[in-house]
């Protein structure tokens, strides 16, 4: 494997966003890119990252390899990069280590680190292709604020999507609260758009603790996409350049 990423910062932000959910994971490398799929310990949330080969320049992966990496270790090394550094990831066949090289674009500084790899026996889950009943795009900072605000009142949030808009509501010991968003187009600042694409009304309840955790990815993308259908996990997607993505799935709270 040899993969050069123009922005070391991108990988650093991804790792910062997921490392409180998942600790040890395999980075699966093949000629389409670098993928990661991992569940949190309680099996309530699933992280799925895809960094497509087009996100790298150049990208070369001659044989499929799984790099088992402890994310705390990776975070330590990525913190050694300067914010504008270029990152090259390298690994041999059947590797013991992954090699990270940070290059400064405007100086001759070159730093190099090896991280020891781990043998991680991780099961892969098949995520079915789903036509979601509601697809909502909104500013990622807005979603983060809603989740944090409602978490002050309750541990769970009901998300209801109708023709009227999307309503986030909660009920707790001190009282209740809700935030409703309607479709909204801002020509000057499309990052502030709220788009709601609905085929049928949806109402689901989720744990706010996980949603707040997902929102650590807000720095990766100005917009976040929420995809919901009744009785299936919520998809929270942060789109990255070149069709790469960081996705989180969250199992709903069900029953009475």
């Amino acid at each position: 494997l040899e993969a050069r990423l123009e922005q070391a910062n991108l990988l650093k932000k991804v790792v910062d966003a997921i490392k409180d959910l998942v600790q040890d994971c395999n980075f699966d490398c093949n000629d389409s890119g670098i993928a990661l799929q991992a569940m949190d310990n309680s099996h309530v949330a699933l992280v799925s990252m895809m960094l497509k080969s087009e996100s790298f320049s150049p990208f070369r992966c001659d044989r499929n390899i799984a790099l088992g990496i402890n994310l705390t270790s990776l975070q330590k090394v990525l913190r050694c990069a300067n914010s504008e550094d270029i990152l090259t990831l390298k690994a041999e066949d059947a590797p013991d280590v992954v090699n990270l090289v940070f290059e400064s674009a405007d100086s001759d500084r070159l730093s190099e680190y090896d991280i020891k790899l781990m043998d991680i026996d991780q099961e892969h889950l098949g995520i079915p292709e789903t036509e979601y009943a509601a697809n909502i795009s909104m500013p990622s900072a807005e979603f983060q604020k809603i989740c944090r605000d409602l978490m002050a009142l309750s541990e769970s949030v009901a998300i209801e999507c109708t023709k009227e808009g999307v309503k986030f509501s909660c009920n707790g010991d001190i009282g209740s609260g809700s935030v409703t968003l309607r479709s909204h187009t801002n020509v000057d600042k499309p990052e502030n758009n709220v788009e709601i694409d609905l085929t049928e009304p949806v109402a689901l309840t989720f744990s706010l603790k996980y949603l707040v955790n997902f929102c650590k990815a807000s720095g990766l993308s100005g917009q976040v996409k929420l995809c919901l259908s009744n009785e299936v996990p919520l998809l929270v997607e942060y789109g990255l350049a070149s069709n790469s993505y960081l996705r989180f799935y969250l199992a709903p709270k069900i029953g009475d």
Binding site: V44, L46, H124, G126, I127, Y249, G255
Partner: peptide, 14 residues
């Protein structure tokens, strides 16, 4: 109240 479901209830092992 509602109970927390698991990812395994929805996504099968490959």
């Amino acid at each position: 109240g509602k109970g927390q479901s698991s990812i395994f209830s929805f996504f099968g092992k490959k």
